[in-house]
Amino acid sequence: MNDVVNSSGSTSTIHAAGVAIKDLRKSYGSNEVLKGISLNVAPGEVVCLIGPSGSGKSTLLRCVNLLEQPNQGSIHVGGFEATDPDVDIDKMRRKVGMVFQQFNLFPHLDAKRNCTVAQTKVLKRSQAEADKVALHNLERVGLGHLADRFPDQLSGGQQQRVAIARALSMDPELMLFDEPTSALDPETVGDVLSVMRNLAKEGMTMLVVTHEMGFAREVADRVVFMDGGVVVEEGVAEQVISAPTQPRTKEFLRRVLDPTHIEIEE
């Protein structure tokens, strides 16, 4: 764990939280998208969720901070039981940073204000303190010089990095990434991935839905392959990606890693 500057400006380590998901089920009507998922993420661990679209990876991620309400099972995040009906959702979400595929920056606020609005309104920090934290985090993602730009004046990759800085400004103990590079131009993907790589090095707990196999292999401690609402295979990143044991994992990776040499099946 490296030293980072926390909200008060002093130096400290990231306080990382773990996640424990047990037998999680989620249906939309009669369509069951999560069919009993169990998954543990240790504090400071980086776990990548991979799998074909429609496999339920994004839904699983969105269940962790209750953007989707699970039907069954339990989720523990830090000291919170997310699935407890009496849980203080807002208090729990302060600990959980979320980064979306479509960035979802607030278009009516500049980059700095995007990073301060929740600090002042939710954490009740003073504007001066919030500004300091925001600038620190914008510098952390390499955008300190663009703090007064509005989202529509930034490239996709820059917007996504502001979105990461916005989440970090709340001093989260866990970061969720929902396909953070899928909506980006290819040449800006690298900047976003390197910010995420640094964050992983600093000891942040990260749960990442991604199609970037290179990133998963290099940065993730573990990789979880999902298909059809179940965990098909999980293990050390290098092992799952380079030497998968399950036929469905092999097939998926063959298609993702070498898309130009797929033979069309009858």
């Binding site: 807002d90 959980v96 479509q102 607030f106 309104k121």
Partner: peptide
Amino acid sequence: VPKGQLEAARSLGMPQWRAMVTIVIPQAFK
């Protein structure tokens, strides 16, 4: 106003009313 705006605001720990007042309603007025 795109649904992602409310989701982003709620994900930062804003209660529903706060997310509406600070994030959604100003954009709707525009």
